[in-house]
Design a protein around this nucleic acid. Structure first.
Lengths: 336, 336
DNA sequence: CATGATTAGGTAAACCTTTTCCTGTTTCTC
DNA sequence: GAGAAACAGGAAAAGGTTTACCTAATCATG
């Protein structure tokens, strides 16, 4: 049925070793034999069985991609970046949605290892001891894409969440805002914490009061933004601006503002985060902190590939990609 | 380093065949030996190497997922549905972005086959002869999720694009609109054609004029909707409503309307398609045709799994999931 | 009690490669 | 021209499993 190296060897009247050598250029073969082999290879349309290859070489051309949830636009753009780069290099992505559940993450990690994936890109809510443990034990190349694990031995890539959030808050302060709420994600998330810290520091550095009752830690999606917004806008004492942890949250918050009879940015300025495509097309266009998410993906893959190819002499890399404030329409200057 | 079946056999003082039998229950083994084997398995934490297993059994617990582009929200939700179902059943998804490029599709198809994937979910812009050829040649279980290939032998799942588009147009007609534009995708896409046909038929059935200059075939994204909108709204002769081929196109079109000084739905009614989360949160909330996309994903996976397990006696299935018009704010009744 | 059927468990082939090790020939060097 | 070195190419092992095939023992049946 399927044509094997054996068939090629037989028809080309050489040993299977020679066929393998021709195909992999692993050892010189005389021009005559090489030609003979290649002719038969072409005729039969022979392709080495990658599974057999994996078994012996312990490399699968497979990369595990662990993410909380592809259906999140930000993440799916990230994945797209990874996949693009992998495809260019002959690798394929094994997609694993974890919901940031440690149990599932570990389950997948183990599965990936057994499938001999050549490397793993890990996007997780927080660095977890079990994961660190796993990668210390099994020397599988890995890129952490969620957090800068400063004292860790593993490579990582991300933006400076702290600074980005700091910049967002400072931007609002620069616009004259002195009462700024923060719609963030769950506090167990590393990113949430970093961004929260940046926000608080920006307030502190500029003499703006921090108010705990203006911090809402729900999730990164539209509904969370909406619910936080409805809750906040129902109060007498409202801030003039809101820093959101994602564009989706911002969209929900804007929606809530409208449903509460408030205009954006006239009555409240709302700041997003991520800069997903919708941010530039929604009404109002969302002022946001842009993350180079696609590039985050491609670069992750590049780093991982470097690590896989470099093997022993590969040195840990920690890359921080620049963020950028994109001024649009959802935030206005306060003219008091 | 890694513990193999050989190690287990040696420590349990049985043959490797017996170990395999205990683990796979492929042949009865006496209780004493079974216990002995299981004890060693637990002690060593032995896990059969799935690659070796794949090589011999020609099954990998891997499913290829071919899609145009994950970063499209609709698609990423679909993928999520698939992955969820696969995970429940111990399978993992191999993600392949094709950009609907036949070359890349074929490349991936061949790659997946060589990796012994147990099945493939195929989301493509149109059924292509090369694909049909491929699946006729290699008997790999497959679910076509893009089109109802009526006379084909392959299973498929989707909504009724024709009817859905028909219903959308009719809905607008029911609202009193008599001049309805159509913002669709490339005409090589099967879905585009189906929906275009539905739109035209609805017009015809209700005595509404069809105007070729009101059909814009660009793409499924925001920019396409925006560009089509800007082009259309610049004209003197404008329709009172637009049927869009996706919510993203609708968002772009709404944006264009605003940038052209037109209100939605006061001046133009704009209808979406898909009902992605953003549709219910944007301004105005988008009236749209809901596709049960997540379910499309889970059901695809279920069908595929059935096919994989059923093997020979599996019968082709063609499932059509219901669509639904979700009335929101972007379309208004015309009171003449 | 003898014969045939059933059963547990072992041996080794098979899956399809890559690569080590070996052999026989050619080339180089003094 | 002899010995060493270099080289091409083949045989076979290795990678880790499953399973076909075989053997020996147990069981049932007439």
């Amino acid at each position: 049925m399927t044509v094997t190296i054996r068939d090629v060897a037989r028809l080309a009247e050489v040993s299977i070793a020679t066929v393998s050598r021709v195909l992999n250029r692993s050892k010189p073969v005389s021009p005559e034999l090489e030609e003979k082999v290649m002719k038969v290879v072409d005729e039969l349309g022979f392709n080495p069985n990658p599974v057999a290859r994996t078994l012996i070489m312990k490399e699968s051309l497979l990369i595990g991609v662990l993410i909380p949830d592809v259906s999140n636009t930000f993440i799916s753009m990230f994945v797209r970046g990874i996949e693009e780069e992998l495809f260019q290099n002959g690798y394929t992505a094994l997609l694993c949605n974890t919901n940031s559940d440690t149990k599932i993450e570990l389950h997948y990690l183990d599965l990936l290892r057994k499938k001999y994936v050549d490397g793993i890109v890990l996007l997780t809510s927080a660095p977890k001891p079990e994961q660190i443990q796993f990668f210390k034990k099994h020397k599988i190349p890995v890129i952490f894409s969620s957090h800068t694990d400063k004292d860790s031995r593993f490579s990582c890539i991300n933006i400076d969440d702290y600074q980005a959030s700091y910049d967002a808050a400072r931007y609002l302060i620069g616009l004259g805002h002195r009462s700024i709420a923060f719609f963030c994600g769950p506090m167990e998330y590393y990113q949430t914490i970093r961004r929260f810290d940046g926000y608080k520091q920006a307030l502190a550095d500029h003499g703006v009061d921090y108010r705990a009752e203006w911090v809402f830690d729900k999730d990164y999606d539209i509904d969370s933004g909406y619910n936080s917004g409805m809750e906040l806008f129902a109060r007498e004492d409202r801030p003039t601006a809101i820093c959101c942890v994602s564009d989706m949250v911002a969209i929900g918050a804007i929606r809530a503002a409208e449903d509460s009879g408030l205009g954006v940015p006239e009555d409240v300025s709302i700041m997003g985060f991520d800069d997903i495509p919708i941010a530039g097309a929604s009404r109002p266009r969302i002022t946001t902190v842009r993350q180079p998410v696609y590039e985050l993906g491609t670069r992750s893959a590049q780093m991982l590939l470097r690590q896989i190819r470099g093997k022993e002499q590969y040195k840990r890399e920690a890359i921080v990609l620049p963020h950028e404030i994109i001024e649009r329409e959802s935030c206005r200057a306060l003219t008091t």
